[in-house]
Design a protein around this nucleic acid. Structure first.
Lengths: 190, 190
DNA sequence: ACCTGAACACCGTTCAAGT
DNA sequence: ACCTGAACACCGTTCAAGT
Protein backbone atom coordinates (compact mmCIF):
# COMPACT_ATOMS: atom_id res chain seq x y z
CA UNK A 1 0.00 0.00 0.00
CA UNK A 2 1.58 3.22 -1.17
CA UNK A 3 1.76 5.91 1.47
CA UNK A 4 -0.77 8.69 1.02
CA UNK A 5 1.76 11.30 -0.03
CA UNK A 6 -0.25 14.23 -1.25
CA UNK A 7 0.98 14.60 -4.79
CA UNK A 8 -1.19 17.52 -5.67
CA UNK A 9 -1.09 17.52 -9.43
CA UNK A 10 0.49 15.72 -12.33
CA UNK A 11 0.55 16.62 -16.00
CA UNK A 12 -2.47 14.49 -16.89
CA UNK A 13 -4.61 16.03 -14.21
CA UNK A 14 -3.63 19.57 -15.16
CA UNK A 15 -4.34 18.91 -18.83
CA UNK A 16 -7.81 17.72 -17.90
CA UNK A 17 -8.56 20.90 -15.96
CA UNK A 18 -7.14 22.95 -18.82
CA UNK A 19 -9.49 21.22 -21.25
CA UNK A 20 -12.35 21.99 -18.89
CA UNK A 21 -11.42 25.65 -18.81
CA UNK A 22 -11.11 25.64 -22.58
CA UNK A 23 -14.66 24.34 -22.97
CA UNK A 24 -16.08 26.76 -20.47
CA UNK A 25 -14.30 30.00 -21.39
CA UNK A 26 -12.51 29.49 -24.72
CA UNK A 27 -8.86 29.73 -25.72
CA UNK A 28 -8.32 33.46 -25.10
CA UNK A 29 -9.35 32.96 -21.48
CA UNK A 30 -7.30 29.85 -20.93
CA UNK A 31 -4.45 31.61 -19.17
CA UNK A 32 -1.77 30.16 -16.97
CA UNK A 33 -3.01 32.30 -14.11
CA UNK A 34 -6.62 31.17 -14.42
CA UNK A 35 -5.57 27.58 -14.75
CA UNK A 36 -3.42 27.90 -11.66
CA UNK A 37 -6.28 29.50 -9.74
CA UNK A 38 -8.55 26.63 -10.74
CA UNK A 39 -5.94 24.27 -9.28
CA UNK A 40 -5.57 26.37 -6.10
CA UNK A 41 -1.94 26.97 -6.87
CA UNK A 42 0.30 29.84 -7.88
CA UNK A 43 0.85 30.38 -11.61
CA UNK A 44 4.54 29.74 -11.18
CA UNK A 45 3.78 26.22 -9.96
CA UNK A 46 2.67 25.26 -13.46
CA UNK A 47 6.20 25.75 -14.68
CA UNK A 48 7.36 22.82 -12.69
CA UNK A 49 5.06 20.61 -14.79
CA UNK A 50 5.33 22.35 -18.15
CA UNK A 51 8.15 24.22 -19.81
CA UNK A 52 5.84 26.88 -21.19
CA UNK A 53 2.27 27.60 -22.16
CA UNK A 54 3.03 26.21 -25.59
CA UNK A 55 4.10 22.98 -23.95
CA UNK A 56 0.83 22.87 -22.01
CA UNK A 57 -1.21 23.55 -25.14
CA UNK A 58 0.61 20.80 -27.01
CA UNK A 59 -0.47 18.38 -24.28
CA UNK A 60 -4.04 19.68 -24.50
CA UNK A 61 -3.88 19.17 -28.27
CA UNK A 62 -2.77 15.58 -27.79
CA UNK A 63 -5.66 15.00 -25.41
CA UNK A 64 -8.15 16.39 -27.90
CA UNK A 65 -6.79 14.06 -30.56
CA UNK A 66 -7.27 11.00 -28.37
CA UNK A 67 -10.89 10.98 -29.55
CA UNK A 68 -9.71 10.18 -33.04
CA UNK A 69 -11.19 7.08 -34.67
CA UNK A 70 -8.81 4.20 -35.29
CA UNK A 71 -7.31 4.00 -38.78
CA UNK A 72 -9.39 1.57 -40.83
CA UNK A 73 -8.85 0.64 -44.47
CA UNK A 74 -12.52 -0.34 -44.77
CA UNK A 75 -13.87 3.09 -43.77
CA UNK A 76 -14.57 5.45 -46.62
CA UNK A 77 -13.03 8.91 -46.70
CA UNK A 78 -16.20 10.71 -45.63
CA UNK A 79 -16.49 8.62 -42.49
CA UNK A 80 -12.83 9.02 -41.59
CA UNK A 81 -12.93 12.75 -42.25
CA UNK A 82 -16.02 13.21 -40.12
CA UNK A 83 -14.28 11.38 -37.31
CA UNK A 84 -11.36 13.81 -37.39
CA UNK A 85 -13.63 16.84 -37.70
CA UNK A 86 -15.79 15.72 -34.80
CA UNK A 87 -12.76 15.26 -32.58
CA UNK A 88 -11.78 18.86 -33.31
CA UNK A 89 -15.28 20.23 -32.82
CA UNK A 90 -15.82 18.29 -29.60
CA UNK A 91 -14.01 21.00 -27.62
CA UNK A 92 -14.34 24.74 -27.82
CA UNK A 93 -11.56 26.19 -29.98
CA UNK A 94 -10.28 22.64 -30.41
CA UNK A 95 -9.24 23.15 -34.02
CA UNK A 96 -7.20 26.23 -33.20
CA UNK A 97 -5.42 24.49 -30.36
CA UNK A 98 -4.55 21.50 -32.52
CA UNK A 99 -3.53 23.71 -35.41
CA UNK A 100 -1.17 25.83 -33.37
CA UNK A 101 0.49 22.76 -31.92
CA UNK A 102 0.47 20.75 -35.14
CA UNK A 103 3.23 22.97 -36.46
CA UNK A 104 5.76 21.79 -33.91
CA UNK A 105 5.02 18.11 -34.33
CA UNK A 106 6.90 16.61 -37.24
CA UNK A 107 5.60 14.31 -39.94
CA UNK A 108 3.15 11.47 -39.68
CA UNK A 109 0.51 12.05 -37.03
CA UNK A 110 -2.33 9.88 -35.87
CA UNK A 111 -4.85 11.96 -37.83
CA UNK A 112 -2.76 11.56 -40.95
CA UNK A 113 -2.92 7.78 -40.65
CA UNK A 114 -6.68 7.78 -40.18
CA UNK A 115 -7.15 9.73 -43.40
CA UNK A 116 -4.51 7.86 -45.30
CA UNK A 117 -6.05 4.49 -44.50
CA UNK A 118 -9.36 5.68 -45.94
CA UNK A 119 -7.83 6.70 -49.26
CA UNK A 120 -7.95 4.20 -52.14
CA UNK A 121 -4.79 2.10 -52.40
CA UNK A 122 -4.58 2.96 -56.06
CA UNK A 123 -3.95 6.62 -55.30
CA UNK A 124 -0.40 7.70 -56.09
CA UNK A 125 1.36 9.86 -53.48
CA UNK A 126 -1.28 9.03 -50.88
CA UNK A 127 0.78 10.74 -48.17
CA UNK A 128 0.51 14.06 -49.93
CA UNK A 129 -3.18 13.53 -50.47
CA UNK A 130 -3.78 12.63 -46.84
CA UNK A 131 -1.89 15.73 -45.71
CA UNK A 132 -4.05 17.85 -47.99
CA UNK A 133 -7.29 16.33 -46.72
CA UNK A 134 -6.13 16.99 -43.17
CA UNK A 135 -5.39 20.61 -44.00
CA UNK A 136 -8.88 21.01 -45.40
CA UNK A 137 -10.42 19.57 -42.24
CA UNK A 138 -8.32 21.81 -40.02
CA UNK A 139 -9.12 24.89 -42.05
CA UNK A 140 -12.80 24.05 -42.05
CA UNK A 141 -13.08 23.34 -38.34
CA UNK A 142 -11.07 26.42 -37.40
CA UNK A 143 -13.33 28.68 -39.44
CA UNK A 144 -16.46 27.09 -38.00
CA UNK A 145 -15.28 27.60 -34.44
CA UNK A 146 -14.00 31.10 -35.10
CA UNK A 147 -17.46 32.04 -36.34
CA UNK A 148 -18.97 30.69 -33.11
CA UNK A 149 -16.55 32.86 -31.21
CA UNK A 150 -17.65 35.89 -33.21
CA UNK A 151 -21.34 35.16 -32.77
CA UNK A 152 -21.11 34.67 -29.04
CA UNK A 153 -20.15 38.29 -28.40
CA UNK A 154 -21.56 40.58 -31.00
CA UNK A 155 -21.78 40.07 -34.74
CA UNK A 156 -25.15 39.66 -36.40
CA UNK A 157 -26.35 36.32 -37.66
CA UNK A 158 -25.80 35.48 -41.29
CA UNK A 159 -28.02 36.91 -43.95
CA UNK A 160 -29.97 33.90 -45.17
CA UNK A 161 -32.55 31.64 -43.63
CA UNK A 162 -30.14 28.71 -43.75
CA UNK A 163 -29.05 27.69 -40.29
CA UNK A 164 -25.33 27.96 -39.75
CA UNK A 165 -24.57 24.43 -38.72
CA UNK A 166 -26.39 23.04 -41.73
CA UNK A 167 -24.45 25.29 -44.07
CA UNK A 168 -21.15 24.35 -42.43
CA UNK A 169 -21.94 20.67 -42.76
CA UNK A 170 -22.83 21.15 -46.42
CA UNK A 171 -19.50 22.83 -47.16
CA UNK A 172 -17.70 20.03 -45.36
CA UNK A 173 -19.50 17.31 -47.32
CA UNK A 174 -18.90 19.21 -50.55
CA UNK A 175 -15.17 19.43 -49.82
CA UNK A 176 -14.78 15.79 -48.90
CA UNK A 177 -16.99 14.89 -51.86
CA UNK A 178 -14.67 16.65 -54.28
CA UNK A 179 -11.57 15.21 -52.65
CA UNK A 180 -12.82 11.64 -52.68
CA UNK A 181 -14.08 11.90 -56.25
CA UNK A 182 -10.66 13.22 -57.16
CA UNK A 183 -8.98 10.32 -55.39
CA UNK A 184 -11.10 7.69 -57.15
CA UNK A 185 -9.27 5.48 -59.65
CA UNK A 186 -9.90 6.61 -63.20
CA UNK A 187 -12.40 4.35 -64.99
CA UNK A 188 -10.59 1.91 -67.26
CA UNK A 189 -10.64 3.44 -70.75
CA UNK A 190 -13.17 1.32 -72.66
CA UNK B 1 -4.77 74.91 -51.79
CA UNK B 2 -5.65 73.08 -48.60
CA UNK B 3 -3.97 74.46 -45.51
CA UNK B 4 -1.15 72.28 -44.21
CA UNK B 5 -3.05 71.05 -41.18
CA UNK B 6 -0.90 68.34 -39.69
CA UNK B 7 -3.22 65.35 -39.77
CA UNK B 8 -0.81 62.94 -38.26
CA UNK B 9 -2.32 59.60 -39.12
CA UNK B 10 -5.31 58.06 -40.85
CA UNK B 11 -6.52 54.48 -40.93
CA UNK B 12 -4.78 53.63 -44.19
CA UNK B 13 -1.44 54.86 -42.98
CA UNK B 14 -1.70 53.02 -39.69
CA UNK B 15 -2.65 49.79 -41.45
CA UNK B 16 0.43 50.11 -43.61
CA UNK B 17 2.71 50.46 -40.60
CA UNK B 18 0.93 47.56 -38.91
CA UNK B 19 1.60 45.37 -41.95
CA UNK B 20 5.23 46.40 -41.79
CA UNK B 21 5.46 45.42 -38.16
CA UNK B 22 3.73 42.15 -38.96
CA UNK B 23 6.34 41.29 -41.58
CA UNK B 24 9.22 42.27 -39.35
CA UNK B 25 8.19 40.76 -36.03
CA UNK B 26 5.20 38.47 -36.58
CA UNK B 27 1.67 38.49 -35.22
CA UNK B 28 2.46 37.83 -31.54
CA UNK B 29 4.62 40.96 -31.49
CA UNK B 30 2.16 43.14 -33.35
CA UNK B 31 0.80 44.85 -30.25
CA UNK B 32 -1.12 48.07 -29.98
CA UNK B 33 1.66 49.51 -27.86
CA UNK B 34 4.42 48.64 -30.32
CA UNK B 35 2.38 49.94 -33.21
CA UNK B 36 1.75 53.17 -31.33
CA UNK B 37 5.44 53.51 -30.53
CA UNK B 38 6.27 53.05 -34.21
CA UNK B 39 3.89 55.91 -34.95
CA UNK B 40 5.35 58.07 -32.16
CA UNK B 41 2.02 58.17 -30.43
CA UNK B 42 0.43 56.87 -27.26
CA UNK B 43 -1.32 53.50 -27.48
CA UNK B 44 -4.59 55.09 -26.52
CA UNK B 45 -4.43 57.26 -29.65
CA UNK B 46 -5.04 54.19 -31.79
CA UNK B 47 -8.49 53.87 -30.30
CA UNK B 48 -9.55 57.05 -31.98
CA UNK B 49 -8.93 55.34 -35.34
CA UNK B 50 -9.98 51.78 -34.51
CA UNK B 51 -12.59 50.39 -32.16
CA UNK B 52 -10.35 47.57 -31.01
CA UNK B 53 -7.37 45.47 -31.97
CA UNK B 54 -9.75 43.12 -33.77
CA UNK B 55 -10.94 46.05 -35.84
CA UNK B 56 -7.35 46.92 -36.72
CA UNK B 57 -6.55 43.33 -37.65
CA UNK B 58 -9.63 43.16 -39.86
CA UNK B 59 -8.31 46.17 -41.76
CA UNK B 60 -4.88 44.52 -42.03
CA UNK B 61 -6.60 41.39 -43.33
CA UNK B 62 -8.38 43.42 -46.01
CA UNK B 63 -5.10 44.95 -47.04
CA UNK B 64 -3.46 41.54 -47.36
CA UNK B 65 -6.32 40.39 -49.56
CA UNK B 66 -5.89 43.31 -51.94
CA UNK B 67 -3.18 41.29 -53.64
CA UNK B 68 -5.75 38.77 -54.76
CA UNK B 69 -5.92 38.03 -58.48
CA UNK B 70 -9.06 39.15 -60.29
CA UNK B 71 -11.75 36.52 -60.75
CA UNK B 72 -11.36 35.01 -64.21
CA UNK B 73 -13.48 32.24 -65.72
CA UNK B 74 -10.64 31.32 -68.07
CA UNK B 75 -8.13 30.60 -65.29
CA UNK B 76 -7.96 27.01 -64.12
CA UNK B 77 -8.39 26.11 -60.47
CA UNK B 78 -4.70 25.56 -59.82
CA UNK B 79 -3.82 29.03 -61.05
CA UNK B 80 -6.59 30.71 -59.07
CA UNK B 81 -5.74 28.73 -55.92
CA UNK B 82 -2.07 29.63 -56.19
CA UNK B 83 -3.04 33.27 -56.45
CA UNK B 84 -4.97 33.12 -53.21
CA UNK B 85 -2.26 31.13 -51.45
CA UNK B 86 0.46 33.52 -52.57
CA UNK B 87 -1.49 36.51 -51.28
CA UNK B 88 -1.65 34.82 -47.87
CA UNK B 89 2.01 33.81 -47.87
CA UNK B 90 3.17 37.25 -49.02
CA UNK B 91 3.08 38.53 -45.45
CA UNK B 92 4.33 36.91 -42.28
CA UNK B 93 1.44 35.22 -40.44
CA UNK B 94 -0.83 36.47 -43.22
CA UNK B 95 -2.99 33.36 -43.25
CA UNK B 96 -3.62 33.53 -39.51
CA UNK B 97 -4.59 37.18 -39.70
CA UNK B 98 -6.99 36.56 -42.56
CA UNK B 99 -8.39 33.47 -40.91
CA UNK B 100 -9.13 35.15 -37.60
CA UNK B 101 -10.87 38.02 -39.36
CA UNK B 102 -12.64 35.87 -41.94
CA UNK B 103 -14.98 34.65 -39.22
CA UNK B 104 -16.55 38.05 -38.70
CA UNK B 105 -17.08 38.80 -42.37
CA UNK B 106 -20.23 37.23 -43.71
CA UNK B 107 -20.76 35.29 -46.91
CA UNK B 108 -19.29 35.91 -50.32
CA UNK B 109 -15.78 37.35 -50.16
CA UNK B 110 -13.43 38.37 -52.90
CA UNK B 111 -11.39 35.18 -52.48
CA UNK B 112 -14.53 33.12 -52.79
CA UNK B 113 -15.31 34.70 -56.16
CA UNK B 114 -11.82 34.09 -57.48
CA UNK B 115 -12.09 30.39 -56.70
CA UNK B 116 -15.68 30.10 -57.82
CA UNK B 117 -14.93 31.60 -61.21
CA UNK B 118 -12.22 28.97 -61.77
CA UNK B 119 -14.55 26.06 -61.08
CA UNK B 120 -16.24 24.36 -64.06
CA UNK B 121 -19.71 25.74 -64.78
CA UNK B 122 -21.06 22.24 -64.81
CA UNK B 123 -20.31 21.76 -61.13
CA UNK B 124 -23.45 21.66 -59.01
CA UNK B 125 -23.43 23.69 -55.78
CA UNK B 126 -20.33 25.57 -56.89
CA UNK B 127 -20.65 27.94 -53.94
CA UNK B 128 -20.17 25.10 -51.49
CA UNK B 129 -17.27 23.79 -53.52
CA UNK B 130 -15.60 27.19 -53.66
CA UNK B 131 -15.98 27.61 -49.90
CA UNK B 132 -14.37 24.22 -49.39
CA UNK B 133 -11.43 25.01 -51.68
CA UNK B 134 -10.93 28.24 -49.77
CA UNK B 135 -10.90 26.42 -46.46
CA UNK B 136 -8.24 24.07 -47.79
CA UNK B 137 -6.07 26.98 -48.89
CA UNK B 138 -6.47 28.74 -45.55
CA UNK B 139 -5.68 25.58 -43.60
CA UNK B 140 -2.67 24.88 -45.77
CA UNK B 141 -1.21 28.38 -45.60
CA UNK B 142 -1.77 28.64 -41.87
CA UNK B 143 0.06 25.39 -41.22
CA UNK B 144 2.94 26.39 -43.48
CA UNK B 145 3.41 29.71 -41.70
CA UNK B 146 2.99 28.21 -38.25
CA UNK B 147 5.82 25.82 -39.03
CA UNK B 148 8.02 28.77 -40.04
CA UNK B 149 7.21 30.35 -36.72
CA UNK B 150 8.24 27.17 -34.94
CA UNK B 151 11.47 26.82 -36.88
CA UNK B 152 12.56 30.39 -36.33
CA UNK B 153 12.97 29.91 -32.59
CA UNK B 154 13.84 26.39 -31.71
CA UNK B 155 12.46 23.18 -33.17
CA UNK B 156 14.67 20.92 -35.21
CA UNK B 157 14.32 20.66 -38.96
CA UNK B 158 12.21 17.84 -40.36
CA UNK B 159 13.55 14.34 -40.57
CA UNK B 160 14.02 13.83 -44.30
CA UNK B 161 16.25 15.32 -46.92
CA UNK B 162 13.26 16.92 -48.65
CA UNK B 163 13.35 20.66 -48.29
CA UNK B 164 10.36 22.10 -46.51
CA UNK B 165 9.12 24.49 -49.11
CA UNK B 166 9.16 21.81 -51.79
CA UNK B 167 7.19 19.45 -49.60
CA UNK B 168 4.65 22.14 -48.78
CA UNK B 169 4.20 22.96 -52.44
CA UNK B 170 3.72 19.27 -53.25
CA UNK B 171 0.95 18.93 -50.64
CA UNK B 172 -0.71 22.03 -52.03
CA UNK B 173 -0.62 20.77 -55.60
CA UNK B 174 -1.88 17.38 -54.47
CA UNK B 175 -4.82 18.97 -52.67
CA UNK B 176 -5.80 21.22 -55.55
CA UNK B 177 -5.23 18.29 -57.91
CA UNK B 178 -7.73 16.12 -56.05
CA UNK B 179 -10.23 18.96 -55.74
CA UNK B 180 -10.12 19.87 -59.42
CA UNK B 181 -10.29 16.24 -60.54
CA UNK B 182 -13.31 15.90 -58.27
CA UNK B 183 -14.90 18.97 -59.78
CA UNK B 184 -14.42 17.77 -63.36
CA UNK B 185 -17.58 16.82 -65.23
CA UNK B 186 -18.09 13.07 -65.32
CA UNK B 187 -17.19 11.60 -68.71
CA UNK B 188 -20.32 10.91 -70.75
CA UNK B 189 -21.21 7.26 -70.23
CA UNK B 190 -20.26 5.58 -73.53
C1' DA C 1 9.45 16.62 -5.57
C1' DC C 2 6.43 20.24 -5.65
C1' DC C 3 5.08 24.77 -4.54
C1' DT C 4 5.12 29.98 -2.76
C1' DG C 5 6.07 34.98 -3.18
C1' DA C 6 7.73 38.46 -5.36
C1' DA C 7 9.28 40.48 -9.14
C1' DC C 8 10.06 41.73 -14.39
C1' DA C 9 8.52 43.20 -18.52
C1' DC C 10 4.82 43.40 -20.67
C1' DC C 11 -0.58 43.41 -22.52
C1' DG C 12 -5.69 45.73 -24.40
C1' DT C 13 -8.75 49.19 -23.17
C1' DT C 14 -11.06 53.33 -20.99
C1' DC C 15 -11.47 58.02 -20.06
C1' DA C 16 -10.89 62.65 -18.56
C1' DA C 17 -8.34 66.22 -20.24
C1' DG C 18 -5.67 68.83 -23.45
C1' DT C 19 -4.91 71.39 -28.23
C1' DA D 1 -10.38 66.24 -34.94
C1' DC D 2 -6.76 63.97 -32.91
C1' DC D 3 -3.90 62.99 -29.12
C1' DT D 4 -1.83 62.67 -24.03
C1' DG D 5 -1.46 60.75 -19.34
C1' DA D 6 -2.80 57.99 -16.10
C1' DA D 7 -5.07 54.33 -14.64
C1' DC D 8 -7.40 49.41 -14.52
C1' DA D 9 -7.21 44.78 -14.80
C1' DC D 10 -4.72 41.77 -16.57
C1' DC D 11 -0.65 38.66 -19.11
C1' DG D 12 3.75 34.74 -19.44
C1' DT D 13 7.87 33.72 -17.22
C1' DT D 14 11.86 33.52 -13.86
C1' DC D 15 13.86 32.55 -9.63
C1' DA D 16 15.18 32.37 -4.93
C1' DA D 17 13.26 30.28 -1.17
C1' DG D 18 10.40 27.19 1.39
C1' DT D 19 8.63 22.22 2.78
Amino acid sequence: MTPARTVRHDRDHIVGIALDLLDRYGLPDLTMRRLAAELDVQASALYWHFDSKQDLLAAVSDRILERLPAPSPTADLLTAARGVRDALLAHRDGAEVVMSSAALRPGPSRAHDVIRAALPESLPAADLGAAAVLQFILGHATLVQQRMHGESHGAAATSGVLDEVGEDAAVFEAGIGLLSRGARPAPAPH
